[in-house]
Simulated scan of single mutants.
Amino acid sequence: MHAVDPADAMANARHEFGEHGGVNMSIEASATFTVMEPETMPRMFSGELGPDRDFFIYSRHFNPTVLNLSRLMAALEGTEAAYCTSSGMSAISSVLLQLCSSGGHIVASRTLYGGPRACNITTTFVDIRDLEMVRREIVEGRTKVLYFEAMSNPTLTVANVPELCRIAHDKGVMVVVDNTFAPMVVSPARLGADVVVHSISKYISGGADIIAGLLI
């Protein structure tokens, strides 16, 4: 594993200029987008043409402004892709409901915001600093996710991300890490995490003026 500077990664990422040459990209307010050639539409719906080539259909799927934020966050965290959501909790819910089905089990840090209590998914809360407790509570064949914060909100408990990932992966369990409080300090994906989530309202926004989330 080699050191990677998140600031350099973002600086070297694709930069979008404004519609009329602005240094910053324009904010896209449209919900739907124009398709000028009829033959383009089937290619878009089949997935042949998409946002990676600047073809957009509907903002629920992709929006140029939101996509740019996603690209920058993927660069910062060192992942293949990132997707924005309407809130941090919606990002968390989307990930956990994708990885767990009815009867599934999650081992999670006891300092987390909330916890899933629906869809017959159960959660065991642990002291994430106690590696033996984490290892003991993971049930092979039943536990689907180990979920914790790299640095917890608000207690600032620091997790041993590489060791926790090793413990989980040894038992076939996916690792989801909330990196809301430490994106420029810790890169969980580079340390072994499968998915990283953020509440943009905190560090990324900086001004407590928006509610949004990221799954990376």
Rank of each mutant, 00 (worst) to 15 (best):
G114N: 15
M184L: 15
M133I: 02
R136Q: 11
D127W: 00
N153W: 10
A150S: 14
I121Y: 02
T155M: 10
K171N: 14
A150D: 06
I128Q: 01
D130Q: 02
P116A: 13
H169E: 12
T143C: 04
M133S: 05
E140Y: 09
D178P: 10
V139P: 06
C165I: 05
I128R: 00
F181P: 07
E149S: 12
I138K: 02
M151W: 01
T111S: 10
V158I: 14
T155D: 10
E149G: 03
E140G: 13
C165M: 03
V145R: 05
I167F: 07
V176K: 07
A182C: 15
L146M: 07
I128F: 02
G115R: 15
I167D: 04
P116S: 13
D170P: 11
V139Y: 09
G115P: 03
L131S: 04
L146D: 01
G141L: 15
D130W: 01
T123S: 08
E132F: 09
H169V: 05
E140I: 15
T122R: 03
D127I: 00
D170C: 14
D178R: 10
N179A: 11
R129I: 00
R117M: 12
R117A: 12
M174A: 13
A118Q: 05
C165K: 00
E149D: 08
C165H: 02
T111E: 08
E163Q: 15
L164P: 06
R136V: 01
T180P: 14
E149N: 03
S109V: 03
L112A: 08
T123H: 01
G141R: 14
L156N: 06
D130L: 01
D178T: 12
G141Q: 13
G172L: 05
A118G: 07
V158Q: 04
L156F: 13
G141I: 11
T155C: 06
I167V: 14
L146Y: 04
P116I: 14
P162C: 06
P116Q: 12
K144H: 04
P154N: 07
E140A: 14
A150T: 05
G114P: 10
I167N: 03
R129N: 02
L164T: 03
T155K: 10
K144V: 03
A118E: 09
